Simulated scan of single mutants.
Amino acid sequence: MKYVVMIIDGASGWPVEALGNRTSLEAAATPNLDQMARRAMVGMTATVPAGMEPSSACACMSVLGYDPRVYYKGRAAIEARSLDIPIAADETVFRANLVTVDNGMMRDYSAGHIDSNESAALIRFLNEKLETPDLKLFPGVGYRHILKLKGRPESLKAVCTPPHDIPDQPIEAHLPKGEGSDLLRSIMAASAELLKDHPINLDRIARGELPATQLWLFWGSGPLPKMPSFKERYGIGAAITSGVDLLRGLGQMQGMDVMCIDGVTDNIDNDYAGQMEEALKALDIYDMAVVHVEAPDEAGHSGNAEEKVKAIELIDRDMVGRLRDFKGDKLRVLIMPDHPTPLNIRTHAAEMVPFMIWGSGVRTTGARRFTENEAKGTKLVVAEAHNIMSMVVRG
C-alpha cells in the first residue's frame, strides 16, 4: 500500500456574500474532489485542541498524526529547524515577518507578498545594523524570517499578536506587551527606522508595490521537544513537500525527508502539477508522500475570495486529478484543510474541518461533494484529528 496526505491549507471557511453565501469549497468547481468524495470516507474533525492557538503549526501537527498537546512547544523553533538554525538551551526564537504598517495601521502582514530575494536582502541589511552576540536574524521564505535571542528567556512571556490577525487595524494595542516585551518592541521600532528609506522599499513603491516597513515579532519558542519519528510511530517511511518552512520543519522533526521541487511556492503561483507529479514519483522510494499547498490560506488572509476559489480549483485540476489517475500500487489518500481561514475574518478559526479518506479498502459515508456541509451531513466526527493518521495507515 502507498499513501498520499494532501493538506489544502486554510481551504475551509464560512459562507460569504461575494460567493453567493457559499464557502470557498462550495463555490469552487471541483469535479475530481467531488468524484472522490462519493467513494470516500468523509467527515469532520478538530485539528486544534481546545484552548490552543488555531495555527498551522498545531493543526498540521494534528494532521500528521501527533497530538499538539504533547508535542507542540512553539512555532518559531519548528521553522528554525527547517532553516538548520540550531537553538541552544539558553536561546529563544521568534517568527519575524516583514510587514507593511501605514499611519499606524497594519496594511499588510506580508509586505505585499515580498519575494524571497528582496526579503533576504532586507534581512541581511537589518542584521548588519542590529546583530550582536545575543541577537541575530535569519532569512526564510518570502516575508517569513527568524529572530534568535540568547540569554533572554523572559521574552517568551511577552504577549504577541500575529500580524495576519489584525488586518487594517491600528497596531498600537497589538504590539508585544507584558513581561519581556520591551526588547521585542525596541527591535521592531529600530527596524522601522532602518527600513523607511531603504532602496528596495523605494523601488517597490515606484513599482506600485507595498514596502516592507518593519519587522513584526511573534510566535516565540525555545528549543524543540523530542518526538518519535514517523517511521517509529506508524511503521512507514515518508517524504514531504511544501512551499513554507513550517511544514518542512514539522517533517524534519518527524524524520521525514524533504522533497525540494522546483516551482513549489507559498502562493497562487505554485506549480501544482509539478508538485504532485514529483510527490507521486517519490512513492517509488517512500511509502507516503505528504503534499502541503499554501495558496488557499494566503488568499484567505488577504480576503481575496476570487483567488481562494481559483487556488482550490487549480488544486483540484492539477493535483487531485493526478491522484485519481495514479497507476501502480494500491493507494490510500487523506485530503483535508488544516484549519479554516474564513474570508470574513482573514485569519484562522478554531473550528472543525472536513476530511476525506479515499482509496483501497475505504468505505463510503455518502457525501456527494468535498465541502463543509456535505462532511457534516455524513454524521462522521473524529473528535481529535491526530487519530486520523492511524485510520489511514492501519485501516
Rank of each mutant, 00 (worst) to 15 (best):
N304Y: 09
G112V: 00
A311W: 00
G43L: 01
G13Q: 01
A350F: 10
V244Q: 12
L323A: 07
M253I: 03
V382D: 07
I114T: 01
D203H: 07
F94V: 09
N201Q: 10
V291R: 13
N21D: 13
S242V: 05
Q35I: 05
L122T: 01
A40S: 15
R107E: 13
Y66V: 01
V4D: 05
D287P: 01
E172C: 00
I240S: 10
L183K: 15
P228Y: 06
V99Q: 04
H164E: 12
S62E: 04
A295S: 14
Q275D: 03
S55F: 08
M227F: 07
A37R: 10
P54C: 09
V293W: 07
L380K: 08
K2M: 04
P170T: 01
T265S: 15
P162T: 00
D67I: 01
L217E: 03
V353I: 12
T341R: 12
S119E: 02
D266N: 09
R207V: 00
A383K: 15
G74H: 05
A57T: 04
Y272H: 06
M106S: 07
Y286A: 03
C58G: 01
I285M: 11
K330F: 03
I8K: 04
Q214L: 05
Y3W: 14
P163H: 09
D182Y: 13
R233W: 02
Q169H: 03
R346S: 07
G359L: 02
A37Q: 09
H339R: 05
A158F: 02
G13N: 02
P86K: 09
G366I: 00
F218D: 06
G65P: 06
C160G: 05
N373M: 12
E193N: 13
A50M: 08
R368W: 11
I187C: 05
M1F: 12
W14P: 00
Y234G: 02
D329Y: 12
G51N: 15
N103V: 00
L246M: 04
P170A: 06
L224M: 13
V309P: 01
S62C: 08
E154V: 09
Q35S: 14
V290C: 14
D284L: 14
S181P: 11
T100Y: 02
A282Y: 06
V381E: 13
D134N: 13
K2Y: 11
V381W: 15
S181E: 09
L175V: 04
K157H: 13
K376G: 07
K327T: 13
A111S: 14
L184I: 11
L380M: 13
V101D: 02
